Simulated assay, not measured.
Amino acid sequence: MKILVLFFAVFIATSSNAVVKRHDIPSRNYVLEKVPEYLIDLPHEGHGVLIKPQWVVTVAHTIFYNYIGKKLRVGDKVFEIEEVHIHPLYIEPGEVLFKGDAAPLMKFLESRSDIALIKLSSPVTTSEPIDIYPNIDQAGKEITVFGRGATGNGEIGENLETKSLRELNHFRNIIESSKGNWLSYKFNKPPDALPLEGMHAAGDSGGASVIIENGKAYLVGLSSWQVWRGDIANFKGGLYGTTAYQVRVSNYRGWIESVLGNS
């Protein structure tokens, strides 16, 4: 089992629903009754996103072992995983990075490519894939993010005991930075926050971040990690003021097209 299985349960990423929310907004406001057709639950935790009828994109750190032959439910049908392609620049951290000052780990996470592609055994015909955002001007855009992970609020942070509830929620935020491999946003404290401002939590990894333009949703990011300063042992996810990083999917368009073309 990967080191990251344990690490991201604590690092990435009181109420009865998922994602970390504003403390002054009812939790029910974040709940989603209808699951977006393109959002896929992975075998253990985390999510993937249907980008082509036979292809799901996710973050590489959700691939805990060889998933070939495992089942994924897409809409009302079940598909087997036929292939898994992890980006060649994805690297797992050594144990030494989980001790002491967080700065070396933050530098390591920022340097790698946390993305993977999953090929299904046959094309999906009952659910609509989502298109990747075609532009590079993501900074300043409002995003909607989905997840079933741990919950909490910005004052107390995430509560890992709630991760097993697996209830789907969404939140909104504004992309602050868009460069290289990453999109980033900050979880602002009210009153400097959106009405449904929030942050991803443990168990939300790979969740879709979308931009809505002219009534159409486009995939821009995949939830990946949070910034921490100081001793790793003191990490608390989802606090106000924390910056979160998402995989900038448009940056990997060339790699995605090459995998799909060669498969």
Rank of each mutant, 00 (worst) to 15 (best):
Y133W: 05
L183I: 14
L105D: 01
F108C: 07
V57G: 01
K189A: 02
G221R: 03
E128I: 08
V96C: 00
L239Q: 12
P195M: 03
K71G: 02
E82I: 00
S177M: 13
H200P: 13
N234S: 11
D137E: 06
I132V: 15
A193M: 06
E158Y: 09
A217W: 02
R253I: 14
I174W: 05
I256F: 00
V19T: 11
S121Q: 04
R22Q: 11
N66K: 07
G100P: 08
V220E: 02
L6S: 09
K21E: 00
S263H: 05
L196N: 07
S164R: 00
V145N: 00
G215K: 04
P93Q: 00
V96R: 09
G254L: 15
E45W: 07
G207L: 10
A103T: 08
G203D: 12
F98K: 00
I232H: 03
S122V: 10
E155V: 14
G147E: 11
L4C: 01
L120N: 09
W255A: 13
P123R: 01
G154W: 01
V19Y: 01
L183Y: 04
L109P: 00
N66R: 11
V35L: 15
V210Y: 14
G237S: 04
E155L: 13
F8A: 08
F64W: 05
T144E: 12
G237W: 08
R73N: 15
I86S: 13
I91V: 15
L260R: 05
F98P: 06
V35T: 14
L183D: 01
V19A: 01
F108M: 06
K119D: 03
I156Y: 10
T242A: 15
I91M: 13
N169A: 10
V96N: 01
M106D: 08
V145M: 06
V57H: 06
D204P: 03
V35E: 09
K189G: 03
F187V: 05
K99L: 07
G75R: 00
S209V: 07
R229Y: 06
H23G: 09
E83M: 02
L260P: 00
D131E: 15
H200F: 15
N262D: 13
W182T: 15
L120M: 07
S27P: 00
K34Y: 10
N181T: 13
K2N: 04
T144Q: 06
F8W: 04
Q138G: 07
H87I: 14
T58W: 07
